[in-house]
Design a protein around this nucleic acid. Structure first.
Length: 196
DNA sequence: TGCAAACCATAAC
DNA sequence: GTTATGGTTTGCA
């Protein structure tokens, strides 16, 4: 049984779906309606679920975690995510994205170089990210630092990045399964927002 | 700058 | 099987 829980915190609706001690899906929106429907759209149609009125310990944990990431906080430990139902390549891309730290962004192409495949395939995975914003797909932009797209609307992506600015000045490399992923200060992506 | 072609995993037929 | 579809990138005029 999949447990669904949603709650309004500080004017924003957050939602989580949990099963087997793991997070199956997360979402957020300004309206309760779309937070819930976004969430249900991710859950496989043939899986039974119930909407909780009192959150389980896991649901509450997960929801608070989503809220922290939303706020731009630097969070190290996340409740377990249910990757196993997803296609292998999708898992690789999401796990790599998970390693992009607060204060930095990377590009679709950089991720593709690290996990294999092509930039467009990476974009496809981002577009269907079940764990936004825990898997920080908002930290992935185009190779020229223009923003690319975002499921919740580009304005939301900008707001995320504004909250995550940390004033870093240098790019750096992150090790992922023996390869390296280059990440750049968030500010790089906020510099030329006027250029569509 | 702008456009065309290459790119590549998924989902949908 | 095959085709269509992107949150892209690169090369070339």
């Amino acid at each position: 049984m999949i447990e669904v829980y949603r709650q309004n915190v500080g004017g924003v609706w957050f939602g989580v779906a949990c099963a087997q001690r793991k997070i199956v899906a997360t979402s957020f929106s300004t309206s309760e309606q779309s937070t819930l429907s976004n969430l249900l759209a991710i859950i496989p149609y043939n899986q039974p679920f119930q909407v909780l009125h009192e959150p389980s310990a896991l649901a509450k944990d997960a929801l608070m975690h989503v809220k922290k990431v939303f706020d731009g906080d630097d969070v190290n430990e996340s409740p377990a995510l249910a990757f196993e139902a997803l296609p292998a390549y999708t898992q690789k891309v999401l796990k790599a994205t998970l390693k992009v730290p607060v204060g930095f962004v990377t590009s679709y192409g950089e991720i593709a170089k690290t996990v294999g495949g092509g930039p467009r395939a990476v974009g496809n995975v981002m577009a269907s990210n079940p764990f936004a914003p825990i898997v920080p797909c908002h930290r992935v932009v185009k190779s020229d630092f223009r923003l690319g797209g975002y499921g919740g609307g580009l304005k939301v992506k900008v707001e995320f990045l504004e909250r995550e600015k940390r004033g870093f000045t240098d790019s750096k490399n992150i090790r992922i399964r023996g390869k390296s992923l280059q990440v750049f200060p968030t500010e790089c992506a906020l510099r030329n927002l006027d250029i569509v």
